[in-house]
Amino acid sequence: MPNNRSDAALRERLKLAEKATQGPWYHTLAAIVGTKKSPEDNDATCICSTEWGCSGDSQANAAYIAASSPDVVRADIEEILRLRGENKLLNSMVMSFAGKAVHETVGGWWTGWKGEKFLTKKAAIMSLIVKVKSELK
């Protein structure tokens, strides 16, 4: 699952984040990650310790784990899923628009924006999309 970023895998990670100790998490004493009412609060509930028996930089590991608390992970995953949905919608709108901007000629060719000829409708649409992208830069 670590490298699986499909929508289904992300939704499974959302479920895991909901079951974990809720944050925010803070890098507290030494190499310990805990929850606190505020960053300044000295009273923390330990989530995990990265110091004993762990390899690497335990301070850096604790800081990274604290920055990846369930609320942060949930927000990131929800944003990814939202952006994927928005991207899908925008792509379909672009394809719809571009499909209306190309025309089939009597000879079976497809003409694009400035009269170029293409063998397929898809090639004409892709040419149009490339030109639109360059105009938007």
Rank of each mutant, 00 (worst) to 15 (best):
N42A: 05
V73L: 08
G23H: 02
L14C: 01
I32G: 06
G56I: 11
S127Y: 02
M126D: 11
Q59R: 14
S68C: 13
L29W: 10
A101M: 13
L136F: 02
K19I: 04
N61Q: 09
T45C: 07
D43Q: 07
G108L: 08
S68D: 10
W109M: 14
E78F: 06
Q22S: 05
S92V: 02
T45D: 08
S127R: 00
Q22E: 06
A66Y: 03
V106G: 06
L136Y: 00
K137Q: 12
L10S: 03
K114N: 15
W110E: 03
A44I: 06
E12S: 07
S127Q: 02
C46N: 11
E18S: 15
V106N: 09
M93W: 13
A63T: 13
T35R: 04
L16G: 06
I47R: 05
T21Y: 11
Q59K: 14
V33P: 04
T28H: 05
V94K: 14
R11L: 08
K137I: 12
A101Y: 10
I77P: 04
P24G: 00
W110A: 07
S92D: 12
Q59I: 15
Y26H: 09
M93T: 08
E51Q: 14
A63D: 12
T120L: 04
S69C: 12
D41H: 01
S92K: 09
A123T: 04
L29Y: 14
A20T: 04
A123L: 10
I47M: 02
G107K: 12
W110N: 05
V130P: 02
